[in-house]
């Protein structure tokens, strides 16, 4: 009986010690963990869409537009200029492509290669894309040109975030 009480008291003290230790550890660490993971829980910025003009300005021939976006990097805020190639097909669907080549990030241009008319052409390593941004197999890029999210509101075309172009490569 005496032995048993001795053990249960020790066990109790052990539990109490673990509990207090757990409280101390949690009390110290919790604020620090929340502090460290804050960027994960903050909403993604960059939801702002930027107006680049009226949808009527665009046609089946790609037109290059430039627009400024506000970038916030912690305590630094800056403006950066982006550009896009915008086309409107017969059905009135608008496609805004990023001009950044998917190979090594040079800037592509429309219809600048005499041998390959009506294609996007990257002068750095001669990468080519179709009008829908599909990369042409056999040229260096391994993915199609990224596209911007588009939205037409109040008679104006707004461009949003860059997203991957789902179109696969085509034979050119």
């Amino acid at each position: 009986m005496g032995d048993k009480r001795e053990i249960s008291r020790r066990t109790f003290l052990n539990y109490a010690l673990m509990g207090t230790g757990g409280f101390l550890a949690a009390g110290m660490i919790t604020p620090m963990i929340r502090f460290a993971v804050d960027p994960l829980l903050q909403g993604h910025a960059g939801g702002d869409k930027v107006a680049v003009g009226s949808p009527d300005e665009f046609s089946a021939v790609p037109k290059r537009v430039e627009f400024k976006v506000h970038t916030k990097d912690g305590w630094y805020e800056s403006e950066s200029t982006l550009s896009a190639w915008v086309t409107k097909n017969d059905k009135g669907e608008i496609l805004a492509l990023s001009p950044i080549c998917k190979h090594l990030g040079c800037t592509v241009d429309w219809n600048t290669s005499p041998e390959h008319p009506d294609q996007y052409f990257c002068p750095c390593h001669l990468g080519r894309y179709t009008i829908n941004g599909e990369h042409i197999l056999g040229t260096p890029p391994t993915a199609s040109l990224d596209e911007y999210e588009t939205e037409v509101k109040d008679g104006k075309l707004y461009l949003g975030k860059v997203k991957a172009n789902p179109r696969p490569g085509v034979n050119g």
Binding site: P39, L40, G74
Partner: peptide, 12 residues
């Protein structure tokens, strides 16, 4: 995200 501390590789 945890390593980058934001959307871009920058100050954070």
């Amino acid at each position: 995200m945890l390593l980058t501390g934001g959307d871009i590789v920058g100050a954070q």
